[in-house]
Design a binder for these strands. Structure first.
Length: 256
DNA sequence: ATGCCCGCTTACAGCGGA
């Protein structure tokens, strides 16, 4: 079973690339972020014609997450619990093929310090609470998405380049570690423990050509999912295509 | 120190992204 996460940075701009990638890499489940479209405008008919079931939690212009799957999925959570006043579409969760899968778009948090960074940390605290409840299921769970956290200094080409950025502040990293300490496995890290794996390359300053990237797209596995972990990686070449997203698809394979 | 590039919007400039 292949589960992928892909921040597509806009559905309208990325649909051809998305369809090509789905056809070429054939994930069983694809968690999408930054669909940047209202739920009713997501191209479910086009994707259905290509053989994909869609669950969509959209938002006009910004944010928005979706879960595509070859087999039908049952939605289990729409929006991250813990703050009824939060109107940003950043969390969607479903049961598919016996695995609980979440599509997460964690707030960026820049500039820091400031209200956006406060929102990021508050959002991470809510995610910790919900993640703890998911661990209580005692079943395979995959929390897949754009976490907007660079966990270690070897998850970026040069830590000095982003040292003041919200993505690698001590508070952001501590909140990510708190998740791991609950019992989650960072799948890519567990198979590439020396770092040096990137999932994002900025559009600016020739970052792709210079391989100036970092790792912010993660798949966290519950113990019952980690027991089934076969492989994990990044579809890097997708980033080098014309009209690419600034993120590359990141994935795990689990035993059937 | 800032912006670079990109996608979005009752758009043609400004915001958000990372």
């Amino acid at each position: 079973m292949k589960i992928a996460t892909y921040n597509i940075n806009g559905t309208n701009a990325r649909l051809p690339r998305l369809l090509e990638w789905l056809e070429a890499f054939q994930p069983d489940v694809a968690c999408l972020q930054e669909i940047k479209t209202a739920t009713e405008n997501f191209p479910v008919d086009t994707l259905k014609a290509a053989g994909w079931h869609c669950l969509v939690h959209g938002q006009k212009g910004f944010n928005g997450v979706a879960i595509l799957s070859r087999e039908p999925a049952t939605e289990t959570q729409r929006g991250l619990p813990g703050d009824e006043s939060d109107e940003q579409s950043r969390y969607l969760e479903a049961e598919v093929g016996g695995v609980r899968v979440a599509s997460i778009y964690l707030p960026n948090g820049n500039p820091q310090p400031g209200p956006k960074f406060d929102y990021k940390l508050a959002w991470m605290a809510r995610l910790e609470a919900h993640a703890a409840s998911l661990l209580g299921l005692g079943t395979p769970v995959v929390l897949a998405g754009d976490y907007n956290v660079i966990p270690h200094d070897d998850d970026i080409w040069d830590p000095r380049a982003m040292q003041d950025d919200a993505l690698m502040q001590p508070e952001s990293r501590a909140a990510f570690r708190t998740l791991l300490w609950q019992g989650w496995t960072d799948a890519v890290r567990s198979l590439h423990p020396r770092g040096g794996i990137w999932t994002f390359w900025d559009y600016q300053a020739g970052a792709w050509q210079r391989d100036h990237g970092f790792r912010i797209d993660h798949l966290l596995l519950s113990p019952q999912a980690a027991d089934r972990l076969l492989n994990a990686g990044v579809d890097r070449d997708v980033r080098g295509q014309e009209k690419a997203s600034d993120h590359a698809p990141t994935w795990v394979t689990l035993t059937a």
